[in-house]
Amino acid sequence: MIFPGATVRVTNVDDTYYRFEGLVQRVSDGKAAVLFENGNWDKLVTFRLSELEAVK
Rank of each mutant, 00 (worst) to 15 (best):
G5Q: 03
G39Y: 08
K56W: 12
A33S: 12
K31Y: 15
V55E: 03
R9L: 06
R19W: 08
E21W: 08
G30F: 06
A32R: 01
E21M: 12
L44T: 09
K31H: 13
K43Q: 11
T11K: 09
V24P: 00
G39F: 08
D29P: 05
F3C: 11
D14G: 09
R9F: 05
D14R: 11
F20H: 11
G5I: 02
E51I: 04
K56Y: 14
A54W: 12
V34F: 01
E51M: 05
V34E: 01
D42I: 15
R26I: 11
N12K: 13
V45S: 03
G5H: 03
T46P: 03
W41H: 10
F3H: 10
N40Y: 09
E51Q: 06
S50D: 14
T46S: 09
L44N: 04
M1F: 11
L35I: 07
A33Y: 15
M1N: 11
D15V: 07
L52Q: 00
R48N: 14
V27L: 07
D29H: 09
L49S: 03
V27E: 02
N38K: 11
W41G: 13
G30K: 05
V45Y: 05
G30L: 05
L23A: 06
F36C: 03
Y18N: 03
A54Y: 13
Y17A: 03
D42C: 15
E37S: 15
R19S: 11
D29E: 10
K31S: 09
G22Y: 03
W41R: 09
F36V: 04
Y18D: 01
F3V: 13
G5P: 01
D15P: 03
K43E: 11
V27F: 04
V10Y: 01
T11Y: 03
N38M: 14
V24Y: 01
Y18E: 01
A32D: 00
K43D: 09
L52C: 02
S28P: 01
K56Q: 13
D29W: 07
L35G: 03
E37I: 14
A33I: 15
K43T: 12
K56L: 13
D29T: 05
V24F: 02
V13L: 07
A33K: 07
N40W: 08
K56M: 13
R26G: 09
S50F: 09
I2F: 07
N40H: 11
M1D: 13
N12Q: 06
V13W: 06
E53P: 01
R48I: 08
R26D: 11
A54I: 15
T16E: 14
D42E: 14
T16R: 14
F47M: 05
D29Q: 08
D42W: 15
